[in-house]
Design a protein around this nucleic acid. Sequence first.
DNA 1: TGTACCATGTAATTGGTTACATGATTAC
DNA 2: GTAATCATGTAACCAATTACATGGTACA
Lengths: 199, 199
Amino acid sequence: MTTLGYALLGLVARHKLSGYDIASWMRDPIGFFWTASHSQIYPELARLKRQRLVTHETIPQQGRPTKKVYTITDKGRAVLQAWVVEPPSERVSRDEFVLKTFSLWTVEPQAARALFQMQLELHKQRLQLYQDMRVYEEEKRGDELRRIDSPAWASYATLQRGIGYEREYVAWCEWVLAELDRAINPTKKRVAISKSKRK
Amino acid sequence: MTTLGYALLGLVARHKLSGYDIASWMRDPIGFFWTASHSQIYPELARLKRQRLVTHETIPQQGRPTKKVYTITDKGRAVLQAWVVEPPSERVSRDEFVLKTFSLWTVEPQAARALFQMQLELHKQRLQLYQDMRVYEEEKRGDELRRIDSPAWASYATLQRGIGYEREYVAWCEWVLAELDRAINPTKKRVAISKSKRK
DNA sequence: TGTACCATGTAATTGGTTACATGATTAC
DNA sequence: GTAATCATGTAACCAATTACATGGTACA
């Protein structure tokens, strides 16, 4: 079984979904840390079906291609549960941007600054988005978010991780920018820039 | 050019290194967010050489295989610099553990607890390690860490990211554990468990 | 008339991991 | 003796991305 397989099981354990539906969910990363495209999803669903971890109904439609709607089987649920509680195989989380930072000493501070400014904006935006999602979920789900056996709670837990991740990324970008600024305006005892000091 | 190629350029821009040396550095992730094994490194070095981005001296040794020590070329440095300031292609950072969390609602709270406890310890350890490294670097490098055109500063910047990442991961694990505990000891107004409250 | 959405697949390519292959030296 | 370190490579496999392939409906 591949990790993608478990991702798909995790989705069909929640809802009946077609391959197309799954592909739409996974265009944005599910749980904020996993994506896949339809070209990976369709063959994987076929594999899951051969292993009897999912079944599907074939639903003919008027004026649209026939679709297959997948459901998890008891065997599938058991396999999913076994995987969930298994300690994860720890692979490095690669981050191209941090790798760039590793060689940041080779470039002009001004260019580095522009780069980090962009990245800061990107992560600020995502953070804002996730925080809005949190507010929305809290309002919409209410008590469901306190039941750890509800899918809503699990999604909320991954959302928390997304928020923490982005918040930390933002803070790090700001730290690097401050370092770069220190080098760009050489020590003139920077006074009263407090306007941009939005903390 | 592949991202790995730039990682190698970033290393040989700092020191003269053999393929073996590079493989040793990259067993642990460089910049805390990139690894590679020798089977990937040797062919990539050959490719970089064909493109004249690196050169090597062949160094025969007594009682050891001849080694090739690589250096970056001017062309290589130019290519590296151009890549560094280029905005990164944004790929999702996959995290199998967060994906497991997405399906955590399907399993027993006790099993989930054990899982998160393990993960918490793991990230606490890494955090401690990184923090020790920071102290060590600060003592050893001193003023070099204030010069943004020094490799030491760049490494320090990536270390900061590693620390932030792990600190946030720890906080998130603790949050999930608190949630799980809330469900495990049903609302008995948890009093005086303060012994295990190590904050 | 062209773009977006619904719907499902296969093929080619790239990047990364694991395994295969060889062989001397040093330290326990 | 046996494991770890030094030293370099190739081959096989797997996962993920990008491209190829088809075709109707809805909407601006």
